[in-house]
Design a binder for these strands. Structure first.
Lengths: 206, 206
DNA sequence: TTGATGTTGTTATAAAATTAACATGCATGA
DNA sequence: TCATGCATGTTAATTTTATAACAACATCAA
């Protein structure tokens, strides 16, 4: 079964909402509740759920627990991943301090930089290693996701290094479009685009 | 003219790429170059550009400068905005330290929190004010965008306070769906969804 | 000059995504 | 018991989005 991109892009939204409702003690949630909370239609949600699988349901709606477990399976949250972060600038160290994803099993296990003055120092209790030791550390710590928080001009070479290891997913924060082979997943993320979208909406929704 | 959501959602991508190319000295970029760099088709890009306006073009492609200026106008980057951040936890202070959007004219002018022990202290050289003083400060500093980096349970009440001021755009980092009137723009952003999307792709693209 | 190549702008076509509609079933309360 | 309301799951229709196709024009090299 091939899941359309428009559908899978909503899975994280569902996951966030279902976690919240389950934490608040709700045992059941209906497609209508979710629709109004998330700004979608119940029809869209019910169709999306057909791709997720057999969620336990009743005349009250879907079981929050069953829903969450299936989402965790399909999103790979059930197993989590070890991650390597490269580039300890302001953005990199901000992510190291924040780590809101750690509770879901996505753990930064190693930190790298090129700058000699940073190597050996500690950021958020983690030692900074030279980029040259990435291959070794990635193997030793069983890392599968690389986080790029470098300046844009070195991002591609870091990505190339990552691709040459066992890393199979790159979370790229550098404002730079990277080229990676098709057996490596790439997710570009940047705060600015969403701020600009907000700015656009403010101009047009008024 | 009404711009479809699928189109306007690509404007920030175009803007990022055009800025990069202009900085690198490129005077012209073609729809084909952009398409291969951004993973789109040239057809899509040419159609999107019809919504942006009359970009200066030649047989080499579009003028990077003209393209950038029109994008800045349509995205509201030309004027920028003053912002207020509420919630100086790990995420809030990470954003205060990072501020990659400052160069584009989006400037955090005031910082708020509820916790007594934080009020009056300084984070990244900015004094933390009590939430009760938000209305006053927003007016005084001509703030139009509110940034919510609080825990989810208080996010709605902060949003309500913001709505009661002259703030017309809310950049929400709390994992919580907020209700705001239609004359206020809302953009939800969170790092986890994009990490989960990456995890999903890793499972499925292999 | 002339042909080949590459560009935009526009129209037409195809594909994808969303929404609506409805059959069916289960609680609930009169 | 029986009607009512709300739920899912599924199919159909609609809307939106993306792609393809092509006319018109500019550049460059031979």
């Amino acid at each position: 079964m091939d899941i359309p991109a428009a559908v899978s892009s909503r899975f994280p939204m569902y996951y966030e909402y279902v976690c919240l409702m389950e934490e608040q003690g709700s045992e059941w949630i209906s497609s209508n509740m979710m629709a109004s909370a998330l700004g979608l239609t119940s029809s869209t949600i019910r169709q999306d759920i057909q791709y997720i699988g057999r969620i336990r349901s009743s005349s009250f709606g879907y079981s929050t627990n069953s829903f969450r477990l299936l989402l965790e399976a399909i999103l790979g949250i059930a197993v989590g991943a070890n991650m390597a972060l490269v580039g300890v600038g302001s953005l990199g160290s901000a992510i190291l301090r924040y780590q809101g994803f750690r509770a879901k099993g996505f753990i930064i296990k190693a930190v790298f930089d090129k700058r000699k003055d940073l190597i050996g120092s500690r950021v958020n209790k983690m030692e900074v290693y030279p980029v040259g030791r990435m291959a070794e550390m990635v193997k030793r710590k069983n890392i599968t996701i690389g986080v790029i928080t470098t300046p844009p001009d070195v991002a591609q070479s870091i990505a190339d290094t990552m691709v040459s290891t066992q890393i199979r997913g790159i979370w790229n924060f550098a404002p730079m479009s990277l080229r990676v082979p098709s057996n490596v997943a790439l997710e570009n993320v940047s705060l600015c685009p969403s701020l600009f979208s907000l700015s656009f909406d403010m101009k047009n929704l008024k």
